[in-house]
Design a binder for these strands. Structure first.
Ligand code: NAD
Ligand code: NAD
Lengths: 219, 219
DNA sequence: CTCAATTTGTTCTCGCGTTCACAAACTCCT
DNA sequence: AGGAGTTTGTGAACGCGAGAACAAATTGAG
């Protein structure tokens, strides 16, 4: 209701919903690939692996893009979600730490297809410089500032050992990066206004181990 | 209070707490490496990146392992958390899909040091068979059942393309695996009693992109 | 021994997220 | 045109987790 000036979707979307929108987008892309042009909240919820009421409520935060009695137009909804998330535009990304994981990330094609473009691969180890991974040169970490400025990079990925993560984060923040994805198993501290998300494989396994142990103990 | 027979910590720990226990364990290990033998909830919370009240509440689910006026004994608490999570024992793990990501995972030393042992690397692609990664042979996916039985594997990791993930999961469940870590960007369906956790890098980046876009729009 | 200082364990309150349930809106068939 | 069937969008109830606040327990000094 409260139409806010001419600017459109300015109301804030709950964080839990934001985290699910990419899942819906993925499910919609899969449906579109199968030639499906329309779907109900029930069908979409099924392929996204969530409850249909939750799906509808999530979508309602974006606006009323469905038709009662009919469902959602796959292409239209797909575009609306992509626009809301911000993946209709291209996001330049730098990856720091081109070891085992960094190589895998650089080679990952799912990046590009979802609106992210790896513009630079940086590593402190001189012996890695000049190597070309997935068409991108590995360069010196010292080139960070120049690259960020040139390409207008806002998102950085940390794939260095834990000990270097805070230093890398500081340098990233220092030259204007405001979103960081951290794969190193360490807590990094950043100023307000900078977003950090962490991915920690060991933690995921430990959570599984906890539940596994409980299953065994019940027996 | 309600001491439950002779069996000890049988009450259930909130999921949100379970997800943080590995973070505390990591922080405690770092403190121990620095030679610190005792710490307060405030100090531990700081290095784990959480609120100290939350930390104390989390730890209280495990029991009363601290001393009022003093704090926590680092080694003792470390052991108690490790025991609760189940990482005092060794968990055999199989990884399926030895491509870019599978290689990185197989080479990751953080696995072993946290109680997980990669007992097999499996891939459907014959040309990969026989390759040795981090001391482990890449074998045929068809060997899954034999390996799971031989080593008593309960945890499986999926690093195949999305299209193969459900099939791999079905085979894993079929031979007794009850915990799955899925890196493929697809929803996999499993019977009740089987735990699945997913890690999706693209989703993490899209969440960052959303917030990044909002920062830009406010300007 | 007593008292001040410290720090844990727990209670209480608040807000967010999930889910149910249903009115509103749309389609299609007769 | 009207009514039956379908499906969305949302109000309301509920449960869980976060954080503030405090009582209980311990230490150490005088
Ligand atoms: N490999 C995995 O599957 C995996 C899984 C989960 C987490 N991780 C974490 O991801 C990180 C990277 O893992 P990895 O296996 O690729 O390690 P790695 O040792 O293979 O690679 C780390 C790279 O970072 C570079 N580096 C070190 N310090 C740097 C600095 N200050 N600036 C720039 N580059 C620097 C090194 O030269 C090296 O190339 C680690 O923190 C690890 O714990 C890895
Ligand atoms: N590389 C990354 O950094 C990255 C990041 C995020 C997510 N992912 C996801 O992880 C998965 C693996 O990525 P990748 O880059 O390693 O891909 P990849 O193509 O390099 O490797 C996939 C491997 O799986 C094997 N495989 C295919 N079907 C199989 C089956 N039915 N059984 C067993 N093995 C099978 C292939 O032979 C191949 O070796 C993909 O789903 C990808 O979307 C990868």
């Amino acid at each position: 209701m409260t139409a806010r000036s001419s600017s459109e979707s300015a109301r804030d979307i709950p964080e839990a919903t934001v985290a699910r929108l990419p899942v819906y987008l993925r499910a919609l892309n899969a449906l579109a690939d199968d030639g499906i042009r329309t779907c109900s909240s029930e069908e979409l919820a099924l392929s996204a692996g969530v409850n249909s009421a939750k799906l509808r409520k999530d979508l309602s935060y974006l606006g009323s893009y469905g038709t009662r009695g009919v469902g959602y137009d796959v292409d239209y909804l797909r575009y609306q979600i992509a626009r809301e998330i911000g993946v209709t535009q291209d996001w330049p990304v730098v990856i720091v730490g081109i070891g085992n994981l960094g190589h895998a990330l650089a080679n990952y094609s799912g990046f590009r297809s979802r609106g992210f473009r790896v513009v630079a691969l940086l590593d402190a180890d001189e012996t890695r410089h000049g190597e070309v991974v997935a068409g991108v040169d590995v360069r010196a970490f010292g080139d960070l500032e120049e690259i960020v400025e040139t390409h207008g990079v806002a998102i950085g990925v940390i794939a260095t050992p834990a000990g270097a993560a805070q230093d890398v984060a500081d340098r990233m923040v220092g030259c204007g990066i405001t979103s960081i994805l951290n794969f190193a198993p360490s807590v990094i501290v950043v100023p307000e206004g900078v977003d950090v998300r962490k991915v920690d494989l060991s933690i995921e396994l430990q959570i599984l181990a906890y539940h596994e142990q409980r299953k065994a103990n019940v027996t």
